[in-house]
């Protein structure tokens, strides 16, 4: 029983201290006390009928009385009755010594695994096996290592975005910060994506009127040309001009088109190569389609 604070009736203490004793005629007992002891007695008898008789504890009533007297004095002094201690309470220890089987039934999953027609796997029940934790408890070395890595990543990002940040600082509207915010953040994300291999920028507009697109590309071209011209005048060497690659892939032929040559203006024209392919296919070349190069 937990220690209780505050004022209580004496009876309770009495009950606690002699839980299994028959009411002794010597002790002065009040009405309610005897009542509760009767109840105790009933419980005790019921218990004893079911299990073996309880041992009568060996405490002497004399000590009890002294205790009571002491308590009486205390109660007269003040309302505070103190913290009860349960040291004197006899705890009955029941030892259940019968051999118990730990979990008489295996789980359904395990039963299915074992009783199936397949041979059970060695060191079988992976279901219950806890995965061995690969991470050792992080020691200081690891922590510093992790923080280094984090800083490294942050620095790289900063270097990549530095020109974006510098543009804000020159605009003067906002104080220069090291972290991108707002539209800067979007631009930075875009750059990151491009560096990771995105096909096109997320800011590139997909659909627009043709006139707009032509205008934009023309403007870009003009700007580029101007830049190159200026650089040339000033003797600055720029990077090599990258021309858009011409589409050199084989044209998709329609169904029913000629298998060889070009059909143009109502005539099938064969190139020299085509002719050579046709004439040489019978003899000199060996296997069928093996060493054959060309379109088909």
């Amino acid at each position: 029983m937990a220690p209780t604070l505050g004022k209580r009736k004496r009876i309770t203490r009495d009950e606690l201290e002699q839980p299994s004793r028959p009411p002794s005629p010597s002790s002065a007992s009040s009405e309610s006390e005897s009542d509760s002891e009767d109840v105790q007695d009933i419980f005790r008898r019921a218990f004893e009928a079911k299990f073996k008789p309880l041992e009568v504890d060996s405490k002497k009533p004399r000590v009890e009385e002294v205790n009571l007297e002491l308590e009486d004095q205390e109660e007269e002094d003040s309302d505070w009755s103190g913290i009860t201690s349960d040291e004197e309470e006899q705890v009955q220890v029941v030892e259940y010594s019968h051999l118990r089987h730990t979990g008489d039934r295996a789980s359904k999953a395990e039963q299915r695994a074992f009783m199936s027609s397949k041979p059970p796997t060695l060191s079988g029940s992976t279901l219950f096996k806890t995965r061995p934790s690969t991470k050792a408890p992080a020691d200081e070395n690891d922590l510093t290592e992790a923080s280094h890595l984090k800083n490294d990543v942050a620095l790289q990002r900063l270097l990549r975005d530095s020109h974006l940040l510098s543009s804000t600082s020159t605009s003067g509207t906002s104080t220069p910060t090291l972290s991108a915010v707002g539209s800067q953040r979007h631009k930075s994300t875009d750059l990151h994506l491009l560096s990771l291999g995105a096909k096109s920028s997320i800011h590139a507009q997909k659909n627009m009127p043709m006139s707009h697109r032509i205008g934009i590309s023309a403007k870009a071209k003009e700007r580029e040309e101007r830049r190159r011209a200026e650089a040339k005048e000033n003797g600055v060497i720029l990077e090599k001009e990258r021309r858009a690659k011409k589409f050199t892939k084989e044209r998709e032929r329609g169904v029913g088109g000629p298998g060889v040559g070009k059909f143009r203006g109502g005539t099938l024209s064969l190139s020299k190569k085509d002719v050579r392919d046709i004439t040489s296919s019978g003899g000199g070349r060996g296997g069928k389609g093996k060493g054959k190069r060309g379109r088909r």
Partner: peptide, 20 residues
């Protein structure tokens, strides 16, 4: 099934073995 057939696994023989 439970004591002999699992031994084959140690010889690299483990797939599609059943004893019904």
């Amino acid at each position: 099934r439970t004591a002999i057939l699992p031994l084959y696994k140690q010889f690299g023989i483990e797939r599609d073995i059943e004893l019904r």
